[in-house]
Design a protein around this nucleic acid. Sequence first.
DNA 1: TATTGTTATACTCTATAACTATA
DNA 2: TATAGTTATAGAGTATAACAATA
Lengths: 159, 159
Amino acid sequence: MKDQVDGILQQWKQIKPELDCSSMGVVGRLRRVDNQWKQQLDTVFKKQEMSSIEFDILATLRRSQIPLTPTELYKTLMLSSGAMSTRIEMLVKRGLIERVYSEQDRRSCKVMLTDQGITIIDLALHAHLENMDNLLKPLNNDEKNQLAALLKKLLLAQQ
Amino acid sequence: MKDQVDGILQQWKQIKPELDCSSMGVVGRLRRVDNQWKQQLDTVFKKQEMSSIEFDILATLRRSQIPLTPTELYKTLMLSSGAMSTRIEMLVKRGLIERVYSEQDRRSCKVMLTDQGITIIDLALHAHLENMDNLLKPLNNDEKNQLAALLKKLLLAQQ
DNA sequence: TATTGTTATACTCTATAACTATA
DNA sequence: TATAGTTATAGAGTATAACAATA
């Protein structure tokens, strides 16, 4: 069975027979899968009225179990400090998080989930997990583990 | 050896022991790999003074071997017609493509690579292939083929 | 009326840097 | 001086819809 990438590789083979495009068969497919997944994941986030970044902020706070500073958050999530401030302000306005100002260092604050924030992120997490389970339906358990192992090898190599 | 995703999964296990987060181990890793790759691919495109979308337009024209209409291009590359018009105009201004107006249907045109466009995309393609080869260095040939096969299975299932 | 392609508008998101307050 | 966090600005990129020309 042929997918779109097979067609693309075949076209290149015709016009550039001397080139080895095999890496495109891996990279191109991974980027396409990511693109499809990204869209489906965003659909579910939108239903909870949040962006994927906002989900990541709330989820990071939830699983840390302790309040984090904006600096810790933007470094973890690889955003600029300005972008993080904007996102935090949005979530504060919606009552999902609150800022707790430090006693020791009065420049600093910690970002903390509100009760409502915890409720919302727990709901969103459930929907997100179900969504990801669906994305992986085409693979059996062995294949999922294989895929995870290959991706982990790539991630560990780049760090 | 543990990667970042292992740490995240472990945190969720602590706070939500009843949840099966295994899908996150696959989806999360794929999304992280894509993110890293995207950045490295963009770096090389930037050196050729193009965006990844512009590369895709030029590459699509190159491997098709025939001029394509803006409509064909925006449907293939999944952009809006307006966004495609803007991109085409940029590439025309830089002399990489030109519009050939149709005789049969005077609303329509075909987008064609110029000689300079062919030179540029051929150079960019070489750099891009080399870049992708580097991204896949952590895997041996068997592993690359396994990864491609798993991703293909996912792509075929979603179509 | 429908379609092709362009243009105008508005929106989202971001990085950068200026800025305030504090260390 | 350096750091934590916010705010202001500008930029990139897009989708949407209005538009002109043609089918």
